[in-house]
Amino acid sequence: MREAWRWFGPNDPVSIADIRQTGATDVVSALHTIPTGEVWPIDQIKIHKGLIEKNNKNQSSLIWSVVESIPVHEDIKLGRVDNQRYVDAWITSMENLAKCGIKTICYNFMPVIDWTRTDLKFQLPNGGYALRFDQQKFAAFDLFILQREQAETDYSAAEIKQAKTAFLAMSEADRALLAKNIIAGLPGKMTDAYTLDNFRNALANYKNITKDILRKNLFSFLTQVLPKAEQLGVKLAIHPDDPPRDMLGLPRIICTAEDLDILFSALPSPANGITLCAGTYGSRPDNNLPEMAKDFGSRIHFAHLRGVAKDKDEQRSFYEADHLSSDVDMVRVISALLNEEKRREGKKGNNDIFFRPDHGHQILDDIYKQGNPGYSCIGRLKGLAEIRGVIKALTAVG
């Protein structure tokens, strides 16, 4: 398995020099300045690649190996009649990346918003901070801040009562922060932040989009992209919906093992793969991560290794736990990935599984630094060290 680290570009407070010191060998990055739907030009890809790899002759080598992500335009997700130009642009970006030697691409098909949390600085008992999703706070936002049309149909009477209690207990500052945390554009989302009004409008576009329609639109997109990916030797790795369930009236279609079975039955191309995000899949009680890592091993091109701890009384609420102390059996997941790599030995092409430590805690000096939520340096370094130790131990015992 190849150790990777996510880098958000020159403005990332964790520099390329810092990444070298972690011992990682590969970088996961993207052209965050290119608007969604536009082509990633070769010259811009080369410049970004040069920033990552420019000191490889004299220092520890770093390679830009994985793209996370090329955003999929909303018109493609909505299946609008004029979406072909965005599909063509996505394919051209993929071709340009392949020409520069970058052939693993993580992407997602989440409508409107990327990964969603209610708290970006949830204090842990040890004094550090983690990301958290609180179902009651989320319901309070949906029902009483956003005031989404017909939102009450998604909640029971008891849930509405609890959400109202939570809402009334918030100050105006608390309510503003909650709205900002949910809609203001987290690192994975490469568009400008929403306001409440344009967020409502964006949600309204999906009023008549069911799971079946959204899945049909994904399949239409992939039907055009996968043949070209096969020709280029590119591996596509779809990221699950985070959290992995319907929310805000939006359908979600990459949440469970069943969803993946549907995807691969319809589109069995070897280029069609997944990002095994252990924390995302693990935040659903009905997902068995070690079994998923084993069953979909041949489709795993990239892995986000992190764990979550679900609330005992409300399983939809969770916080980002330590990498090895969570509801995810990380040792068994890593063992399944190592076994998959062993199975691939001797086969044509690059068969390594890239992974990165994900959503590290904000601890030590990083508590006093401004960084991308979930992407502090020291917390991820701790996670990487723990994962590295598991890999060493499992490799040593066979």
Rank of each mutant, 00 (worst) to 15 (best):
R332F: 01
D197Q: 14
P244I: 05
H239E: 11
N217W: 03
G282V: 06
I42F: 02
K369G: 00
L168R: 09
C106V: 15
L337T: 01
G389V: 00
M1Y: 05
N201G: 04
M170R: 08
A4C: 15
A396K: 12
L364H: 01
L178W: 01
D358P: 10
N372Q: 12
G23Y: 04
N181A: 13
E230A: 13
V67Q: 10
N339V: 05
F318A: 03
S376V: 00
L364V: 00
A89G: 11
H73L: 06
M110H: 07
A166M: 13
V67R: 09
L51H: 08
P243I: 12
C277R: 01
D82F: 12
V28Y: 04
G371W: 00
L78F: 07
R356T: 04
K312R: 09
K348M: 10
P35L: 10
S156T: 15
G360S: 09
P13T: 09
T256P: 08
A321Q: 08
R20K: 11
D259L: 08
Y375T: 03
S29L: 03
E3L: 08
I70L: 14
S60F: 01
H32W: 10
Y86I: 09
K211V: 00
G279M: 03
S298C: 03
T191Q: 14
C100D: 02
G273I: 00
A139K: 09
T191L: 02
N11A: 13
L78G: 06
F302V: 08
G23I: 06
A89E: 09
D352R: 13
P10H: 05
Q147W: 00
H239N: 06
E3R: 15
R132P: 00
I353W: 03
I254M: 13
